[in-house]
Write a protein that binds this DNA or RNA. Sequence first.
DNA 1: ATGGCCAATTTTATTGGA
Length: 255
Amino acid sequence: MLLATWNVNSIRAREERLIAWLGRRRPNVVCLQELKCTDDQFPYDAIEAAGYRAAVHGQKTYNGVAILARSAIEEVTTGFGDGGDESQARVISGTVEGARIISVYVVNGQSVDSDKYAYKLAWLERLETFVATHDLSAPLGICGDYNIVPDERDVENADSWAGGVLYNEDLSARFQRLLDLGLVDTFRRHHEEGGLYSWWDYRMLGFPKNNGLRIDHILATPALANTSTDAYVDRDERKGQKPSDHAPVLTAFGP
DNA sequence: ATGGCCAATTTTATTGGA
């Protein structure tokens, strides 16, 4: 099973590229983030024509997450369901081919002294609790834009990012806590080296200079992760006309 | 040393992204 995650930065702006990419890569399951559209604006027809089902949790202007799959997506739920704030569409879950799949769009945080960063930290607490409510002995993939740089290998210019809302010791510790629950960073399982990123700033020649961050992650329970055979960033999707500022990250599982 | 983006909406500016 080929599992992908991609922050498309507006699915309407990216529709043409997304459809072409689905046709080329044919992933079994795709977790999308930053749809930036409501459910009724979602391009269901084009995605269906490409051979995919879609479970969508949209929102006007901001956020929005989805799961695409070539087979049925069952038991779809949205949000954390923990009684907390569900006003931002950042989580959708579904079961595909016997694996529970969760698409997450973690809060960015804007600046460390902002209310948004406080919300990010509280949201990450909820994510940790949410993960722990699952059967972690079963196949589970939690994929998305985590807005966390796990460690120094995952940032090109560490000095300029250190202490910010994406890269600091507290966030790295929080990411590690997710791994300590039993999740595996499937990309890291196949790449111990640094310098491999999933996001590059549109500005200041970020991509040509490889001034990037690895913030999009496919985490999986051992039942799934132990079967992974390959993981990679599809850097070609950051090139050419109208790219998202994120490239897709993919992990292949199974025999 | 600095600039150099993109998308949606509130649109000829503002907000947010990372």
